[in-house]
Amino acid sequence: MENRRITDHPILDFSEGEVIPFTFDGKPMEGRSGDTIASALHANGVKVLGYHFKTKRPRGFYCAIGNCSSCLMVVNGQSNVRTCTEPLLPGMKVETQIDRGVPDDV
């Protein structure tokens, strides 16, 4: 898999953050401290975060600042989480969202 993490940058220092384990659709993956859910997925080469509930078209990371709805996913059973701004936490269960979603205890 291509390594998407920048290690050597002329201006910025990116220190290797602490490893944060999580799962994506059941697959174990690793993020780094400082990651949002979407950035961790991106680092793992995941491009499709969900499918639009009406058009069924694939959706990916788009605005990265919580403005759009492209990155909505199911996280720990909760639908419609904006993964581009939601910090990644150890053990998170992240799943592709394919519908409108429901509240977590339904």
């Binding site: 491009k47 694939p58 959706r59 990916g60």
Partner: peptide, 11 residues
């Protein structure tokens, strides 16, 4: 224009 891999410059 909505394909994953299309980003705003800010993103």
């Amino acid at each position: 224009n909505d394909l994953p891999g299309i980003y705003g410059a800010g993103a």
